[in-house]
């Protein structure tokens, strides 16, 4: 492989170019470098959280190709080579919060905040794909994002409100 070097200890290191929030980063990674660690350690984008590291909690959710939520704890950085991602740091633009972020604050849809980045990205992906989701579709879209504080109620309200629909419950 052309984009690989073997260092003096015999460890293979790969050059990857990964676009995050519109900026392309070219870095060396090992085969076992996970995307979540690439984001947090190499780019210091610590809004992407580690909660379970096994794809169960969704704290590390990022948007692949700007629209598809995936768990970055299960993706290798080498697999992400050449791809584009949006992390929570890329949701607000120019100091202006995204509508979803505003609604999260308004409805008290966050408490400890640890699941919030992943939750917001899942919500963002949902409303991009389906601007008027039903309450069940909202629940379904965030079912891979575990929250231990809110009981989800205010999160569901915030997302429904962000979609301009009646607030359930």
């Amino acid at each position: 492989m052309s984009n690989m070097i073997i260092d003096k200890d015999g460890v293979r290191r790969y050059v990857v170019s990964i676009t995050v929030n519109g900026d392309e980063y070219t870095k060396m990674v090992k085969s076992n470098t996970l995307l979540v660690n690439f984001l947090r350690d190499a780019l210091d984008l610590t809004g992407t959280k580690k909660g379970c590291e096994l794809g169960d909690c969704g704290s590390c959710t990022v948007l692949l190709d700007g629209k598809t939520p995936i768990n970055s704890c299960l993706m290798l950085a080498v697999e992400a080579d050449g791809r584009e991602f949006i992390t929570v740091e890329g949701v607000a633009s120019h100091e202006k919060l995204d509508h979803i972020q505003e609604k999260f604050i308004e409805h008290g849809a966050l408490q400890c905040g640890y699941c919030t980045p992943g939750m917001i990205l899942s919500a963002k992906a949902l409303l991009t794909r389906n601007p008027k989701p039903t309450e069940h579709e909202v629940r379904e879209a965030i079912a891979g994002n575990l929250c231990r504080c809110t009981g989800y109620i205010n999160i569901i309200k915030a997302i429904m409100d962000a979609s301009g629909q009646e607030i359930p419950m």
Binding site: T46, K49, V88, E89
Partner: peptide, 19 residues
Amino acid sequence: KPRYDGRVKVTGAAKYCGD
């Protein structure tokens, strides 16, 4: 009133110990 820490938490700017 909106949460004191709402903005930093929704933008991912809030630093937790592991960050």
